[in-house]
Design a protein around this nucleic acid. Structure first.
Length: 470
RNA sequence: GCGCCCUUCGUCUAUCGGUUAGGACGCUAGGUUUUCAACCUGGAAAGAGGGGUUCGACUCCCCUAGGGCGUGCCA
């Protein structure tokens, strides 16, 4: 029977192995652990699973810290390094031998491979055949490993919050290695010991660990320890439905930061991948914490969709503080610094024209562009002959304008148009084009106000000259 | 090979046996507009297939197909 933790406070953990960057799947696992702990008023811990000394790197550890920090998923205690607990893990391995739940084995890796191959050929589960199971060999570092004595019959089951009840025949499970020949503990032993020692109440992780949970349950039982609650969440797939590939989102968290996505938007989007709260699509992090629960996580794997992420990001971008966004633009384009006030003035309109941070800087670029400004193809199409002729005729009015306010400019323009019997469409697009160099720009009169009289007249003249050259 | 898990519009999902199967992204038609966005209105778009159970199945059971994961002295 599986016993479960009965403690009151919820404690979750994110336990990545530091062998690469914090990829998007890991980030979501961390988010779920964090959100659940926050929702329950519990604790969220971080454990670096660095028992594989050869593959663990300081760079990867730094990338994990960095990614979590960016996403705002701050652990409630200093990170635990699994490697540091090796002695304790080793001690437990020997204890299991002493209590008859494990044994020493001196079969060579080659011999074990052969056993597995034979079993596979016979159509049975590939596993260690138990040669040393009852040999009662003494432990000899460098020569023997310690194997767990998996029950030979019956079955093991877990009650998974996401996956439901899952049972497997013990005959399917191998006598896994707990302690390697070099004396170091394996992952399977270390997780169990650390999760127990850290008082983890809920193990929330990718469902690639589902069968591991069965094996770990056997270890918990051999140790007479409470089994934590499990929640195995489905993995994220790439846009093509296959495994997450580099082009489909298996990028480090920092890659999304560089693409201009906001942490708030990442939390929103990632949470929605596999978890749902009715029809709610766009929500704040505090709403996420308020609503999050393990039972509303689906069992099917979800695909990563950059377009939807962009949409979610656009929503959070609009909700962002204007000063913060201005600062971001200046950080991306230092030459924008003198134009801070103008950019802030235009921000409400700029926000609606961007989904990501770099796009926002792009939308603001016309404000701090130096004459003569670059005019893109779409803008050039708006510079038709008739419109440019009208613009030429309008130039003196701009040069002579005394009231450079939005209302004054509007009146000025309308007076000109009515005098000539023109519609705004016969002048406006060309004016916009020469002033901003792009059709993707804010309200015309705001543009004039932001640019100021001198810059406006200058850009109009540049545009007219350019046109004359063609 | 063996085991476990999964399968609703292209994508993310709602639905706890009775709905015209809802929402969102994307796509699309139109509106608004000096442009581009934003916004508003409308549209196309789904229960993998086959058996059961039931008065009635997307929902429960079985089979098939497809997909994922595991099967390490990696984690």
């Amino acid at each position: 029977m599986t016993s479960t933790t009965t403690g009151s406070a919820v404690i979750t953990r994110f336990a990545p192995s530091p062998t690469g960057f914090l990829h998007i799947g890991g980030a979501r696992t961390a988010l779920f652990n964090w959100a659940f702990a926050r929702h329950c008023g519990g604790q969220f811990l971080l454990r670096i699973e660095d028992t594989d000394r050869a593959r663990s790197t300081p760079e990867a550890i730094a990338a994990i810290f960095d990614g979590l920090d960016w996403l705002g998923l701050t652990p409630d205690a200093a990170p635990v390094y699994q490697h540091a607990n090796a002695e304790r893990h080793t001690e437990i391995a020997h204890q299991l031998v002493a209590t008859g739940h494990a044994y020493c084995c001196d079969c060579s890796p080659e011999a074990v491979d052969a056993m597995r191959q034979r079993a596979r050929d016979a159509g049975t589960p590939p596993r260690y055949d138990g040669t040393c199971r009852d040999h009662d060999l003494p432990y000899q570092e460098g020569k023997t490993v310690i194997r767990f004595k998996t029950p030979l019959s019956g079955q093991t089951q877990i009650q998974d919050i996401v996956q439901g009840d899952v049972a497997v025949d013990n005959a399917q499970l191998d006598d896994l290695v707990l302690l390697r020949a070099d004396g170091t503990p394996t992952y399977m032993l270390s997780v169990v010991v650390d999760d127990h020692d850290m008082n983890i109440t809920h193990v929330i992780r990718g469902d690639d660990h589902l069968t591991n949970a069965l094996r770990q349950t056997q270890i918990y039982q051999a140790l007479s320890w409470d089994v934590p609650h499990f929640a195995h969440i489905p993995l994220i797939h790439g846009a093509d439905g296959a495994k997450l590939s580099k082009r489909h989102g298996a990028l480090g968290a920092e890659a999304y930061r560089e693409m201009g996505f906001l942490p708030e938007a990442m939390r929103n989007y990632l949470a929605r991948l596999g978890w749902s709260h009715g029809d709610d699509e766009l929500f704040s992090t505090s709403q996420l914490v308020e609503w999050f629960d393990l039972k509303s996580i689906g069992k099917a794997p979800a695909r990563f969709d950059l377009e939807k992420l962009s949409h979610v990001n656009a929503f959070h971008l609009r909700a962002s503080d204007d000063d913060m966004l201005v600062a971001d633009i200046v950080a991306r384009a230092p030459e924008a610094a003198p134009s801070r006030e103008k950019i802030k003035f235009a921000m409400p309109q700029l926000k609606e024209r961007a989904q990501t941070l770099p796009e926002l800087t792009q939308a603001a670029a016309f404000i701090f562009a130096k004459r003569p400004i670059v005019i893109d193809d779409a803008a050039r199409k708006m510079m038709t002959e008739p419109r440019m002729a009208n613009l030429q005729a309008f130039l003196p009015s701009l040069e002579a304008a005394g009231d450079w306010s939005e209302s004054g400019l509007k009146a000025l323009t309308e007076a000109f148009l009515s005098e000539k019997g023109l519609k705004l469409g016969e002048l406006g697009p060309a004016l916009r084009a020469v002033l901003t160099g792009t059709p993707n720009s804010p309200n015309l009169y705001d543009i004039l106000v932001i640019l100021g009289q001198q810059e406006t007249v200058g850009r109009v003249q540049d545009g007219l000259n350019l046109n004359a050259d063609n």
